[in-house]
Design a protein around this nucleic acid. Structure first.
Length: 536
RNA sequence: GCGCCUUUAGCUCAGUCGGUAGAGCAUCGGACUUUUAAUCCGUUGGUCGAGGGUUCGAGCCCCUCAGGGCGCACCA
């Protein structure tokens, strides 16, 4: 790294040159570049002013971007150790803390600042008499958004505000671009999602939603580890995109010169592992569906799927309930949540109360007074759909009709957690037929707040029947339904080696995070949601 | 893909009947040794999303396009 200083200087002056020539209206190569004209306070002028501060620091031999800072405490640790101090206390406890300047109040020969780190925030008490004229001027020149390391003593002000009496302050990184409004923050959704970093800096709610999301995921991992599940990773690139009904993203591998699909589900690889004898496996992973974007859908989202040998759907239903209730306790410290219905009315629900279980047909009967069953002729169900004013596709069989009638009549009213069961065989090609009714499967979907959160079943493990179901899928796909599946020969071979009785469960992690953080858009729980590219 | 709404300073927002651009925060200058979104005085900052049209005159009316939001469709 010889010559580092020279190259740094060159970079610095190049940057200034670029800035002026690219962004000034009348670039003039002969202009004195080191002292830019600081007119106005538009964005460019503001950036120039701050970049000028960096040059001043370098001229004094100070690196404005130092390599490290060793803090003694996080701000939460400061608060827990000294939060009880009475007003007007000065201690001789010396600490070193680091964070971002969020607020600054100058008051003559005193400056109060608010520094925030990941854990908390704290007030800086900067006295000219303590820090000296030069240090005071340095603090005065700080901008909101700058990162600083601070040495000082823990104290409280006369009004009792826990503070650091600053003896020395070191700039750790300069913010060249100004922060959004310190009081109103940043509300423009476009900017919030595109510039998530800015959103996280200024919006407490945004930070909280992602803390909840993280807590949910780590809670799931703890719960599953306690149940002897093994976390695995399976391929994202699939030769065949199976395990769900959805349009896949298509990509291409150059060396193999073949088309590949991004996975739309985790299911088929995880069940291969049950064939292999791993007994209890789960994966938390990204899946991709080439479909519309809405407040409930992002093209890439996170699923947790688990498979448990020797269990059936009732067992994984219990696990589903347990995982989500425990996640609520871990992430938000309560099982009581507000759930908005489609009209926006918020219902208070205790997730710890047992969740309702009802079949699709029961729910349809509740809403329409009509008894339905997938054994009924499709014309009977079409007549009901006509009566309800529901549109349908002539290619749908009785099973698909029942599901659609359920969605049309009952889904929007499922606010409290409800396990919906009794899915017809036709729409469940990987689920095992009900032990008492060959027309339906041992399957459930969990609905909360009219949104589907989870899906599980007793896994179909008969390779002969699975082949027939796959062939029906393939036939539907060939007939023009792009979301239907294909015959996965390797999966069938795996089943031929013997899949034990198995219960499987898939949970939409984003939607659980939405539920527990109380937000209504999936974009609020995905750090970088899919958007059209920004025009620069 | 369709419908409705929306886009004004770095951020948050006003902008009346079509008459030539406003506020708060931030910035910059000044005052202030216990502030809490500090306060007070002063200052600077604009391709009104882009393009076209109507008009003597357009942020405002019309058309096209682009971004975003919501709803519908799609989404087991």
């Amino acid at each position: 790294m010889h010559g580092q200083k020279n190259s740094a200087q060159r970079r610095s002056s190049n940057y200034r040159l670029t800035l002026v020539s690219a962004e000034s209206n009348t670039p003039d190569e002969n202009e004195e570049l080191d002292i830019p004209e600081l007119t106005g306070s538009g964005l460019q002028a503001e950036k120039s002013r701050r970049l000028g501060q960096l040059d001043d620091m370098r001229a004094k031999g100070v690196n404005p971007y130092p390599y490290r800072f060793d803090r003694t405490h996080t701000l939460a640790e400061i608060r827990s150790s000294w939060g009880h101090l009475e007003a007007g206390t000065e201690t001789d406890n010396e600490v070193a803390i680091a964070g971002r300047i969020m607020l600054k109040r100058e008051q003559g020969k005193l400056i109060f600042g608010t520094v925030r780190d990941r854990s908390s925030d704290i007030q800086l008490f900067v006295s000219k008499a303590v820090i000296g004229d030069e240090g005071f001027a340095d603090v005065a020149s700080l901008d909101l958004g700058d990162w600083v390391g601070v040495y000082g003593n823990v104290m409280t002000t006369r009004k009792g505000e826990l503070s650091i009496k600053v003896s020395r302050l070191e700039l750790l990184s300069k913010a060249v671009r100004p922060l959004p409004n310190k009081w109103k923050g940043l509300t423009d959704t476009d900017t919030r999602f595109r510039q998530r970093y800015t959103d996280l800096i200024v919006n407490e709610d945004a930070r909280r939603a992602f803390e909840v999301r993280h807590a949910v995921i780590s809670s799931f991992r703890r719960s599953l580890a306690a149940k002897d599940f093994i976390e695995v990773e399976t391929p994202v690139l699939h030769v065949e995109a199976g395990g769900a009904h959805a349009r896949p993203f298509v990509t291409h591998h150059n060396s193999l010169d073949m088309q590949l699909y991004l996975r739309i589900a985790l299911e088929l690889h995880l069940k291969r592992l049950i064939v292999g004898g791993m007994e209890r496996v789960y994966e938390i992973g990204r899946v991709f569906r080439n479909e519309g974007i809405s407040t409930r859908h992002n093209p890439e989202f996170t699923m947790m799927e688990l498979y448990q040998a020797f269990g059936d759907y009732s067992e994984v239903m219990a696990i589903c309930e347990e995982l989500i209730v425990q996640a609520a306790r871990d992430a938000i410290g309560t099982t009581i949540v507000g759930i908005a219905d489609p009209a926006g009315v918020v219902h208070t629900v205790d997730l710890a109360e047992p969740w309702r279980r009802a079949t699709m047909m029961e729910l349809i009967a509740e809403k329409t007074g009509v008894e339905t069953h997938p054994s009924q002729p499709v014309d009977t169900l079409r007549a009901l759909a006509d009566k309800l004013g529901m549109r349908y596709d002539k290619r749908w069989g009785s099973g698909k009709m029942i599901e659609e009638i359920f969605e049309f009549t009952a889904e929007s009213s499922l606010i409290r957690p409800t396990f919906v069961t009794g899915h017809p065989v036709e729409i469940s090609p990987l689920a095992r037929a009900d032990r008492n009714d060959p027309f339906i499967t041992e399957r459930f979907e969990l609905f909360v707040g009219a949104r589907e959160l989870a899906n599980g079943y007793s896994e179909l493990n008969d390779p002969v029947e699975q082949r027939l179901r796959f062939e029906e899928e393939q036939a539907a796909k060939d007939a023009g339904d792009a979301e239907r599946g294909t015959v996965d020969e390797d999966y069938l071979r795996a089943l031929e080696f013997g899949l034990p009785p198995t219960g499987g469960l898939g949970i939409g992690m984003d939607r659980v995070a939405m539920l527990l953080s109380g937000v209504s858009s999936i974009k609020e729980v995905i750090l970088f949601p899919t958007l059209r590219p920004e025009a620069f």
